[in-house]
Amino acid sequence: MGVQTWWRTPTARRYLFGYTLLAPAVLYVSLLVGVPFAFSLYLSMSDASVGNPVARFVGLENFKAALENATFYTAVRNTLVFTVGAGILKGLLGTTLAFLLLQPFKGRKVVRALLVIPFTLPIAVSVLGWKWMFDSQFSVINWALSRLQLIGAYGSPDWPVWLGQPGLALFSVMFVNVWRGFPFSAIVLLAGLTSVPPEIIDAAKVDGTTFMQRFRLVIVPMIAPILFIGSAFDTVFTLSDLSIVYLLTNGGPDAATEILPTLAYNTGIRAGALGRGAAISLFLFPLLLPAMILLLRTLRRRQY
């Protein structure tokens, strides 16, 4: 078949039709995700600022400046502690909850709907609630702890100021991330567990396996793809979320809760140093990459 006639075949017309339908979405995403991403590489190597539209190329100056800044190392350390610590807690709570929800019991649907509230509430909304619960004087948590005689009265040295003491503040922002994320972990795990056909479990039972053996050798390998996707999503979300720290502590006290997203925002937008900000936010990329590669590989192996 010649080239000229190939264009008239139904296959060629189907391709043309198909790529035309795809074009708007692909263009939108390329123009507003792909191009900005490339642009952020350029910005990170320029001295662009909010007030100065004409940027000069400065090479790796911005990266060097970040690496010479002590706060930057605090932010990297906090980002890692925050992501890993919260990830472990979400994994533990989510697994426990998933196995509880796997049991048949009365009111399961209602319980499930209540349990996912933290994940479904817009994040800025719930963080404001936590800000009030962590209030330095009128914290309801402190009221309860004080009544249980676990801490002294307001003003006593063991009265915790959740967002005001360095160690506690990092714990508090992590806790809010865990609070928001544990229902997601539980539901993803539950989706995985219910997707294992009962016949396979039964067959393994007939073969005389213990619960732990079945869990390790049958269930985990079968639900691994779902777990990978779920944890990749959660990692990307946790690494890149600014709102919890921004609204609760804005990085304080004294940089104790500074993470890369808040540092990038405060440098790039607040202080107006777009180039410096872009460079800082790009330091997140190597941290995000493993999660994205894991996701890509899992998606490509999946059968449709």
């Binding site: 991403f37 872009a278 936010s281 995000l288």
Partner: peptide
């Protein structure tokens, strides 16, 4: 999965 925190500065432009 390309998060807002990487895109918000170029998108500001």
């Amino acid at each position: 999965l390309v998060p807002a925190i990487i895109l918000f500065i170029p998108l500001a432009r």
